[in-house]
Design a protein around this nucleic acid. Structure first.
Lengths: 120, 120
DNA sequence: TTCTTTAATCGTATATTTGCGATATAAGAT
DNA sequence: ATCTTATATCGCAAATATACGATTAAAGAA
């Protein structure tokens, strides 16, 4: 492509998109589920559970960490990962806020006493 | 990469990832917001509001439609788009379900009477 | 029919993502 | 000091995503 256009959108739009992007791979969804079940987890445990090579899992963990969805701390020769609940709840509520706002707008313009859609 | 590994994960994990993927670009977030505000919208109106070429917007609309987040119907020489509320709510609740499940697990294993995290 | 309008699709260039093996790093064990 | 374990990073290949201009298609207007 010629030039990146992502910066032409609002920060909130970019934040939501970045959050969604971090969740946009089944391996990363699976990692989050494992972290939730075990509360905390070292890389090797996740590698055993996923059908991916160690280096690939490490890369997915790095992406989740960069996006702020998980935290990782060095524990001797290991790395211990946890879900960053604060960030997760923040993005979850932002997502719900967008969704709720959309629903309200939809009800206002297309409710029982509102106009009908011309199409769709 | 050598081979696709996405199919090695569960259907629910793939569904959630696909939904997140559809939301993973600020242009598509912006499109959803426009569709919500106007209830329904033709392609040209969206093109005027976004800093992207017509062909690019059309491509984003196609991705949202393929992911099932919006519907599109032909209206003469125009195409009218709407948010597919049912699919949107379904995925939203699935997302919330995952999040709630994670939160419950976290409270159970790390609540006021539970054990502390060893790291993070 | 021909012209205009609207949108989808094609072709192309470039950027990013995904995945793995190999290597590097870092810390504890011997 | 050397070995082992655990993980991050590098380098590469292949697949996807992003963006645009040009073209095509489809329907109403002249």
């Amino acid at each position: 492509m010629a030039i990146h256009k992502k910066s032409a959108f609002t920060q909130k739009e970019q934040d939501l998109a970045n959050f969604a992007k971090a969740m946009s791979h089944p391996a990363r969804i699976a990692i989050l589920k494992v972290l939730a079940q075990r509360n905390e987890c070292i890389c090797g445990e996740i590698v055993e559970l996923l059908p991916l090579a160690q280096s690939t899992v490490s890369q997915h963990l790095k992406e989740l960490k960069t996006a702020g969805l998980i935290t990782g701390t060095i524990d001797g020769p290991r790395s211990c990962y946890c879900i960053n609940w604060k960030a997760f709840e923040k993005f979850n509520s932002e997502f719900n806020f967008l969704f709720a706002k959309l629903k309200v707008n939809n009800a206002r313009t297309n409710g029982s006493s509102g106009r009908k859609k011309a199409c769709c």
